[in-house]
Design a protein around this nucleic acid. Structure first.
Lengths: 130, 130
DNA sequence: GTTACCACTGAACACCTGCTCAGAGGATTG
DNA sequence: CAATCCTCTGAGCAGGTGTTCAGTGGTAAC
């Protein structure tokens, strides 16, 4: 038999878990939980999304855009950042589809992309307020 | 109306904006939006919260805990990480009150802290699925 | 008491993030 | 076309993040 503890552990190894050098205190729990664990790919995508929201300057930009659409230099003035820095951060927000934009003459106007954002915002605000 | 393009800029400076070397294309917009911008303190708190969710391993841990409470070594096995790494990450999740824990003998069992977490999870999943 | 086990911690290291600075691209004005 | 404005991009660098490794503390079993 495989493994470790004392006298138990009947036919513990799942077919796809070839080796088991870890302590595994409650192996049955582990096996129940494992199918519920996020896939690496999906965890990665969600992490990138939250990562886009994990900077105070980006959150300020979003809160400004929640009011109305704005161009880059106005955003920079509103949140007191350099325009280059704003542009870099907007790129991050764009990559996660948190904002959309339209060109008008020399300006590029940004606005929030969809409504999930505000919903997430509210849930988090509730969580932090308690 | 106030402002915008070429020949104006009469008494533009707000009382608390002493200097203005930035382009400020649409000053009226900026002044409308500014009070809506998150305070630095609140933006910081929200950023820290999202930051706790911005790592794929931590998201995997949370998805495992969504099923049932687990101790550290079981978590390590479920998400295929070292136990030390899990312990470090759980510290982050604890600091944002995303998980709670109870001691039982040699084990420490972790579980999700409250329901806002799953709500946030659903909103983000919806956002990413479209 | 001794041993084994589970969990936590600190240090060191590699990697990633976000800023500033300098410059390029695109569009409008004169 | 020349000049100006708004925006974007790449390089370079401080600072933060996440891992492993080694060691500590606390609890249960012998």
């Amino acid at each position: 038999m495989a493994s470790s503890r004392s006298t138990e552990k009947p036919s513990i190894q799942a077919a796809d878990s070839p080796t088991c050098d870890k302590p595994l205190v409650h192996l049955d729990n582990v096996r129940q939980v494992q199918p519920e664990v996020l896939s690496t790919a999906k965890a990665q995508r969600m992490a990138e999304f939250f990562s886009a929201l994990s900077d105070p300057h980006r959150l300020k930009l979003l809160s400004a855009l929640a009011r109305q659409e704005l161009c880059v230099c106005d955003l920079a003035a509103a949140v007191k950042m350099g325009e280059s820095a704003v542009s870099h951060q907007l790129r991050v927000l764009k990559s996660q589809r948190l904002v959309k934009y339209r060109r008008q003459g020399r300006n590029v106007f940004y606005s929030l992309a969809d409504s999930h954002i505000t919903a997430v915002y509210r849930e988090v605000a509730d969580h932090l307020d308690e």
